[in-house]
Design a protein around this nucleic acid. Structure first.
Lengths: 201, 201, 201, 201
DNA sequence: TATGAATGAGGGTTCATTCAT
DNA sequence: GATGAATGAACCCTCATTCAT
């Protein structure tokens, strides 16, 4: 009789739990969501959660890590052939409406938490570093192709673009009835003009 | 002879409490900060808080309202004579370093909360509406002066600019050791290029 | 300038406060009514209550005393000429409907409290002793007139009658839509038959 | 292998808690008894109470329901062969002294509460309805046997008898040193005379 | 006399976590 | 693995009471 259970199944369940946690955190906030609630959402008993995570803190951290990895994964599968700005904004272009942006609200939870919690800040920074590298490289390629203003410092610009993209989910919260497509187009226009090579300035 | 209450003193104390609350909320989060902690920070006894506010929920709401009003007050006292982009970013230009941006982190708390709490969302939207009106007007003036691309829809752009400005406090959280002045310059550049009248497009 | 204020006015205000307290206690219960609520009901400030009573406990005791005195005062002004049973039930016959019995609900508060609070019990007993004496005397007079069974022990019967009268306010609580006049008549019938001289027993 | 909850054990513990609550409520009153005190009385930790009841309000309601059911259960197991009045008073005849009546004091708490709390009132009325039905039937049987005055309306009389029986616990509170047996006999006498068929009225 | 600011203990309730089964 | 009973600290809030004015 095999004692050590299938580690794959364990990992799978772990991910399921993180997704359940994500839903609860979205609904109630990082503090507002209780472990009991997460367990209910995931369909397990309250005690059993501790077979997968040693504490709620760790759940938050793991969820952050997992979420950010998946979120910024969009940059990885970006469409070849598109122009640089579109590539850089692929995360937003993969969405169809404000509804698709909902799950991003957890970012605000994480940013708020990052302001006072070094571990969450570290996770955020680590993830950002990865995304920055990708964007930086894209920008450099753009500069090489003459699509991007060569005077811009790729690393700096990459950081700013991440902030701008992550700011998008603010819009539906701050303004009611904003048109998704129009906002996306405007954002794209801003980035395009920003990056465009400047003639004889 | 009964001394009639001094409503001024009451109001003054109320504001002091809101500032104490703001500090606690920054330090521990909206949920994480306890009323006891706020009282300690303000130097009053735990029960006395309820002389000024009927509940913690109301404290959060009042703090949000108060904070947003003061924050976006910057747009009102903007320097005359500056170019449109600078005026629009005056909030950021009034700051000297990342330290000055710290108190803005409460915005992330509020955005996170706004996602699930209709009252906070309403407060946020009401405040945004006011700021949008101011920015919109500035943009229209810029268009009249020929400083701003006449093809841009002022209301839409105003919303986007607010999001972009509010995204700035993300930068020090996401990237360590970022230079404040450089980031501000880059942000200003982006906005300037975005708004600039386009020649023969 | 007279320093010592009119003690009459003081006493008058004290009684007003007790009535306000009675209303609050009825509405919220002895524990449920706060001193703040009583002050509001009486139209004075929270601190000022303590110029009239040293503590809430004393308010309850004073209210009990005052209330019982007034309630059982009915027995004193009973109509001459009526038959013994009617005299004994004059408290109930002075009422016109269940609405008039409402204020008696405070009795249940007092009985509950009397069960565990020796001072309230003492007040209740002291008052009961007075009423018993009156009823006893009435019964003895009835026996002398041949209206009341001479075999009944007046003191015992008096106690029972008080309990029976005080039980009346239970009826509208326990049974919905009970007719007041019919219930009163039935109660009177029971007492009349109880007291009636028995032929050839 | 997961062990399925034992619902029997849960129910048993629940009843234990209700009895502990009843003791505390008697000692300190419905409001005066704290959940902490109930937990201590029951020998559990303060938080654990909420495994069995969602709130103190529910505890009070459940206790009321449970108590009234058990109290008025006496009428169900009444002795056959006794005369109607004795049957009707079986609740009191099952007791041996004032000590046995102590637990009934909770009734005064419930009556006081019923005056302002619709849910407690509903519970009280529902229970009363059941008891009335039983008493009514007994009365009708008595009328058929010629033991009870046929002119009395059984439903009305039943309500009155419940009130009279529930008034009995007032006696030891209102009068010190009252003899239990004598009071019971007097009460029985009153009821007997009340119900007795009347000759030539 | 009269006010209302101020206190601090204690109320009901929640929750992360542990543990026997 | 999986359950849910059990804990106890902490949370938000109420309240009788005191006191400077």
């Amino acid at each position: 009789m095999a004692r050590k259970v299938d580690p794959e199944k364990h990992e799978e369940k772990r991910l399921e739990l993180l997704e359940a946690a994500h839903r609860c955190f979205l609904r109630e906030g990082l503090r507002g969501a209780s472990t009991a609630m997460i367990c209910k959402e995931a369909g397990i008993s309250p005690g059993h959660l501790y077979h997968y995570f040693p504490s709620k803190v760790v759940i938050v951290e793991a969820m952050a890590e997992d979420y950010l990895r998946r979120l910024h994964g969009y940059f990885a599968d970006r469409p070849e052939g598109a122009d640089t700005s579109t590539v850089l904004l692929s995360e937003i272009w993969s969405m169809q409406g404000w509804g698709d942006v909902d799950h991003c609200r957890i970012l605000f939870e994480l940013l708020a938490e990052a302001g006072r919690n070094p571990r969450i800040r570290a996770i955020l920074r680590e993830n950002t570093r990865g995304v920055r590298a990708v964007l930086s490289q894209t920008l450099r390629a753009g500069q090489a192709k003459g699509e991007v203003d060569a005077g811009l410092e790729p690393d700096q610009v990459a950081a700013m673009l991440i902030a701008v993209v992550d700011a998008a989910p603010m819009l539906p919260l701050m303004v009611e009835g904003l048109d998704f497509a129009a906002s996306r187009d405007l954002l794209t226009l801003m980035v395009r003009r920003f990056l465009a090579p400047q003639r004889e300035v």
